[in-house]
Amino acid sequence: MTDRLPNLWPLWLRAAWQKRMWINSAPCWTNSVEEIMDEFLLGLFTLSLGGSVLVLAIMGLSRLTRSRYAARWRCVVWLLLCLRLAVPLVFTFPHTTPVQIPAPALDRPVAATAPPSSQPLPTLPEEAQDQTQSLSIAQVLCVVWAVGVGGVFLWSVGSHLRLRRYLKRWSIPVSDQVICNRYHAQAQRCNANRVPPLVHCPGLQVPMLAGVVHPVLMLPEHVEANQMLDYALLHELIHYRRKDICLKVVAIWAAAIHWFNPLVWLMVRQVEQDMELACDEAALTVLPPQEHRAYGETILRAAAQKASH
């Protein structure tokens, strides 16, 4: 009788009943916070391990194919890897458990339920309560990881803010017309439509491009308008045109996410080296061949001065 009873109902009532049964049998998300932490840590370590393998593979292939492929292509590969490492998410569907709720028996008498008892509920022993309140290994690892990420981000943001505050207080716009003319001439040489502001900065030894949102090209306080300055300006303007600062920011972001992995920090160092090589390659393409040697000597001298300070 109960099996055939729904067939005797009106059409709209049977449709409503079927809809209710479909909703009751829908998947129920049963992942707890601890399970989510376990999955996140597993995905993070898996991503970091895979990234380490790719870092070693790219570095090995770059040594074998250095003469065949330019450094700018390695920068593209580094950018793709950094973007993947910077997003520590594993795109998987959570585990679902279907819950089946049987249909109520309409012709069966409903059993009388006993009134609720006034007896107190049993309590867990103190040792069991301490175990339930203690942190799991996944929670401890997540806290340690978050502290490390926050430390790297605070260090990076703090360094940037200190530099901006230093520039705001001590930098002086370049007023020498000869230097300004040389600056715009190098911008035309490398096809830079827009140029960053040019300022003098006391305590600086070599020209340097700094800033993420509003880049500034900084010059030493006392600088001579000669060919060496032209090469240094050309080098920094190519960095500005290539948006190398964006690649460096993404690499540092990936290093902050994977701060526990030394190979990721090695990747950041390799990214900086390949950015410099790509910039030098671009500079040599716009310079005449007779100036290549002088440009190389200027860059090596600037690198030595930067390393000594």
Rank of each mutant, 00 (worst) to 15 (best):
L41F: 03
V152I: 05
V174M: 08
V223T: 15
N24I: 09
V199A: 12
W259K: 04
S32H: 13
R84V: 05
E126N: 05
E127C: 05
L204A: 12
N7S: 11
C180A: 12
P98R: 15
L284V: 12
R66Q: 06
Q186M: 14
D244V: 11
G203W: 12
A114S: 09
R269G: 14
D38V: 11
E272Q: 06
D38T: 12
W29V: 11
T132P: 00
G151S: 04
L11T: 09
L287V: 09
L42R: 14
R194P: 08
Y240G: 03
I36M: 11
A16H: 05
M267Y: 03
S156Q: 01
I179V: 14
P288W: 03
Q133E: 02
L124V: 04
S136Q: 09
T298W: 00
D38C: 11
A278K: 01
A128T: 08
D176C: 06
L219R: 08
W22R: 15
L121W: 14
Y231G: 03
L64C: 00
V206K: 00
A15C: 07
I245F: 04
K306S: 06
L8T: 15
F40V: 04
W12L: 10
R108Q: 10
F93Y: 10
F153S: 06
V264N: 05
V90D: 10
I299Y: 03
C201I: 11
E272S: 05
A192R: 01
V87S: 10
L154G: 00
I252H: 06
R14D: 05
D274V: 05
W265A: 14
V143Y: 03
N7K: 07
T46F: 10
A255S: 04
T97C: 13
N7Q: 15
D130G: 07
G60M: 11
P122D: 09
R301C: 07
L121P: 10
R189C: 02
